[in-house]
Design a binder for these strands. Structure first.
Lengths: 223, 223
DNA sequence: GCAAAAACGTTGCAGCAACATTACGTTCAA
DNA sequence: TTGAACGTAATGTTGCTGCAACGTTTTTGC
């Protein structure tokens, strides 16, 4: 990971750098709010470790600036004392976690991992192609990054087709997947769902379409 | 937190349950290695409290199994005597801490906190977004700085949803997290809790709402 | 090539399953 | 004994879904 360390105390900074570098992280070290502000413009850091006591003011000021500017990079605030008051201050200003000195290197590393993992949305995409993402874990369809609401049946149809992308899926296979074996259907319910699904995909600008293989089934592929 | 207690002695188990539940933790109680093994499959526990003397063997056997399988869930081993020999046994097998009976409730709680905090499975001490703060350590919800009293179940639902903010959480996931696996649910208890939780959030002016994804689950996000 | 039939597409709507809300009885700890 | 927490059930609400009717496209039979 690439981290931004904002800490002016020499000894503390040296110790932190040693630990972080040893863990194979890339660390940019700044000793003032002003320098840190500039470094943040690059927007390449996975997380920020921010001391409160800095030569040109309270670190929380920088944190507030970041949040006001919509910067959601995870920030761990280092506080000299573990006072309840100070703690709430940091949280109100948008800190993701705080750490009272002195602390163990292990604890910092654990917090860091936790905070970064939380900011990266849980990665469980089983399918992703073009601008279409299907998150099986959360049963969500995303197109160009934004969620497209699907009903349960639509999601089922989509998943079957996506799993066999580029391959024709028999009509019977779809019916069996969407309904039970025993559950027989006596209408064109499946067609309805495909129709509504097509519309949602098109409206959202998906780069995939569902083709009809007449007499056989359906097939999904990129456009 | 959600804990797994493996202890067959009735009196000891009752006392531990009382202490842990009072601290707003959810405890799954198993009385044998076999049952505990099954419970661990779900992989949802923040820590395990493991007795050595169990009807179907030494608890350390289960601990070894877990570590061999790559399970890093923190484990605190309870030993009948505080013999140096026994202690080393446990630590060699991958225990995170040990506790010799008899012990004080406070000591267990402190060890538990320490052990869980060290482990990286613990997401963070706090969750904060907008005017909503969740303090996992104290099991408190704060909105705009003031505490909103929640019941145990409400807190659990909230934590699960908050941990996956912006993502749909399957109904089954919530049910499994709030109740045990064996504990089957035959009513709309979950719906009740969601309903009451929604009301409390709204009344307190929270900037987050719980959305229903019909047929799939729930989703929490900022307004 | 043409008509007819078959297969599929689309859309409105009623029914019903899923969900929301609230009241009430039970349990259990203080 | 009292009150909080919780599960249960009754009742109200919502919107998914199957269905059917009608339109469109492709295939078939001649």
């Amino acid at each position: 990971m690439r981290l931004l360390l904002v800490e002016d105390e020499v000894e503390m900074a040296r110790a932190l750098m040693a630990v972080l570098v040893q863990q194979k992280h890339i660390v940019d070290h700044m000793t003032s709010i002003e320098n840190a502000r500039e470094a943040l413009l690059s927007n390449v850091h996975d997380a920020v470790i921010l001391d409160r006591q800095l030569p040109d003011g309270d670190g929380l000021a920088l944190l507030r600036e970041m949040r006001d500017a919509g910067d959601k990079t995870p920030v761990i605030v280092l506080t000299a004392q573990n006072e309840p008051g100070e703690r709430v201050d940091g949280l109100d200003d948008g800190a993701d976690d705080y750490l009272g000195k002195p602390f163990l290197a292990d604890e910092l590393m654990a917090r860091l991992r936790a905070v970064v993992r939380r900011s990266e949305s849980y990665i469980s995409k089983v399918f992703a192609e073009g601008n279409v993402e299907i998150d099986l874990d959360h049963q969500e369809l995303k197109i160009s990054g934004s969620v497209v609401p699907l009903t349960r049946r639509e999601m089922l149809v989509l998943q079957i087709l996506a799993r066999r992308i580029g391959k024709t899926v028999l009509r019977a296979t779809l019916e069996e997947a969407v309904y039970g074996y025993d559950d027989e259907i006596q209408s064109n319910a499946l067609d309805s769902h495909v129709s509504r699904l097509r519309r949602k995909l098109a409206d959202a600008g998906a780069c995939m379409t569902i083709h009809t293989i007449r007499g056989i089934g359906y097939l999904m592929k990129g456009t």
